[in-house]
Design a protein around this nucleic acid. Structure first.
Lengths: 196, 196
DNA sequence: GTCTATAGGGGGATAGAC
DNA sequence: GTCTATCCCCCTATAGAC
């Protein structure tokens, strides 16, 4: 692979801007200024702003999915891992860089939708697996559907980020997860009582 | 107040476009075409695109808050009203027109932030009140914080809308609420057992 | 592979006639 | 109150020298 300093700088700048302002609000000029690269470099390495953003999102998703898989591969009781995942520190006031894109028109393009869906799928699948294991161990009531609850928890994280941004206050995110964790603990308690 | 057909048409068109594409992606030209009004009309009635959008959001928020308050004022067991609120049909694939704005740069302007916060506050406050009542009746465990759980449920709704849009599939929203409702029922059961 | 210069089009808004 | 005509600026991209 030919090393191209400007190509890397362009990707770095694009990753930052996609998080800060999203795709539509990020102009090629913004990218060029932040990466100290000129139009010639941008359009030499990428065919369009969309292609550049697509590659940037692809790289971010690949990294994040790997980290998520690693987190859920840790040792420990399944339900505890789920709880720890919800309690992970997140920069919630900045919002989720994947979630923020779903409201842009450009999400219809495969280049952006692909990475976003890969990210959501990774979380959903890992959560579903752990919740299934928890249920088999009797750590969750029989009435609970692991698939549905996984979607609930993913929605909780996404919605928590929306509220933290709306109020510009991290504690909204924390309240959202704490409220859910309290319910989860009650359900787990009840399951254990019934098992014994 | 002088009746101005064009003023009303402009507001109607703006309300639609704010939902469909958001604030940044909506150009004055788009508004003009949809409302069959010309620049002269727009800038006669409103000082800027932001002022027009602000008035549109203010009217929507006012309406929605009234409907929310009416819904939560209905008769019935508090927890049941909360459950019914979560099960309300929503056009989730279109997303939440308030939630979608929090990722736009323009949310920093009071004209837009005000209505968005008014909407979120109304839901939060109504949910908190009903959950407090439910807890007092012994329909929720003592470990559950009504304030935190209200934020969780609001986050769930917002996140459910994000996922439904991401996957272009209403059932994601429904899974999110069903998973949460199952947990809520388990917690309610446990509270009732302990009370008896 | 990176640069400078430039193009076509649309964004947000204003002026002034009617 | 509504219209037409027009302005300036930035958005995205291309051409072609180095």
């Amino acid at each position: 692979m030919a090393r191209s300093p400007k190509r890397e700088k362009l990707l770095e700048a694009t990753k930052e801007l996609l998080w800060e302002v999203g795709f539509e609000a990020m102009s090629p000029r913004d990218i060029q200024e932040r990466s100290a690269a000129r139009p010639g470099s941008l359009y030499h390495h990428f065919s369009s702003k969309l292609a550049l953003a697509g590659e940037a999102m692809r790289e971010i998703a690949e990294q994040d999915v790997a980290r998520i898989n690693a987190f859920f591969a840790e040792e420990g009781p399944p339900l505890e891992i789920v709880q720890r995942y919800l309690e992970l520190k997140r920069d919630s006031v900045r919002g989720c860089r994947f979630g923020r894109l779903v409201n842009e028109a450009s999400i219809q393009h495969d280049e952006l939708r692909g990475p976003v869906n890969a990210f959501f799928n990774a979380i959903r699948e890992n959560l579903t697996l752990k919740l299934k294991q928890a249920k088999e161990e009797g750590a969750l009531p029989a009435t609970v559907s692991p698939e549905a609850l996984a979607v609930s928890l993913l929605a909780l994280i996404q919605g928590g980020a929306v509220l933290a941004r709306a109020y510009q206050d991290e504690t909204l995110y924390e309240q959202a997860t704490q409220g859910a964790l309290a319910l989860l603990r009650e359900a787990a308690d009840k399951a254990h009582e019934q098992a014994s």
